[in-house]
């Protein structure tokens, strides 16, 4: 069996390589179903992380993963589900995307239907000083009923559950701060891949 290739930090110099024009606009912001998902990335001292990169990956409005190509050269009417946002000098990231539907997102790997699953998008966090990226989920604060029955959320310590739930902070706008360490540390996820 071939063995997993180890990761290494993205380092400080990815700026010419990874961010791309339109990267944060997974769904064109003028589209009626577009929502904003944004926040700041904070370190263990509570300071913003100005050299992080966040990736988002989410299903479409019907809950289906997109198989559309073209994330790097976007079709303004399309939706590939994938986006990238480098953080700004004040540690801020922002995406325009859609809130995934729940149509099929409740199908687990076990193949067992899990209609209790709430809509979420997957976030990957990369930064200098972060030797291997982190994965987490952003759920939506205006889905309290779905969130209450979500198989992951309901397993979490109630004190930490909120770190995965983006709060409504305006019309069609959600905010989720990502704390790498310390008080309010974001719940990061292990999907059973090599550690």
């Amino acid at each position: 069996m071939p063995e997993q290739t180890p990761g290494q930090t993205v380092g400080p110099f990815f700026g010419y390589a990874l961010p791309f024009d339109g990267g944060p606009e997974v769904r064109a912001p003028w589209q009626p179903d577009a929502v904003r998902l944004h926040g700041v990335v904070l370190d263990g001292a509570g300071s913003p992380v100005p050299d992080a990169m966040i990736e988002v990956w989410g299903a479409d409005g019907d809950g289906r993963p997109s198989t559309e190509r073209g994330s790097l050269a976007r079709d303004p009417n399309g939706f590939t589900g994938f986006g990238r946002s480098a953080t700004s000098a004040d540690g801020h990231y922002a995406f325009s995307t859609v809130k995934p539907g729940v149509g099929r997102s409740g199908v687990g790997r076990s193949g067992v239907g899990r209609s209790g699953s709430a809509p979420y998008v997957v976030l990957a966090v990369f930064a200098r000083g972060l030797l291997h990226h982190l994965l987490t989920r952003a759920y939506f604060g205006d889905e309290p009923d779905a969130n209450a029955t979500d198989p992951l959320l309901r397993r979490l310590d109630p004190d930490r559950r909120g770190t995965l739930v983006a709060t409504v902070d305006g019309p069609r706008s959600y905010r989720l701060d990502l704390r790498l360490q310390g008080p309010g540390e974001t719940v990061f996820l292990d999907y059973g891949t090599a550690q």
Partner: peptide, 13 residues
Amino acid sequence: PTHELVRADPEEI
């Protein structure tokens, strides 16, 4: 992070 990662069952996405 100082907390252990939390095991999650991957869903379709």
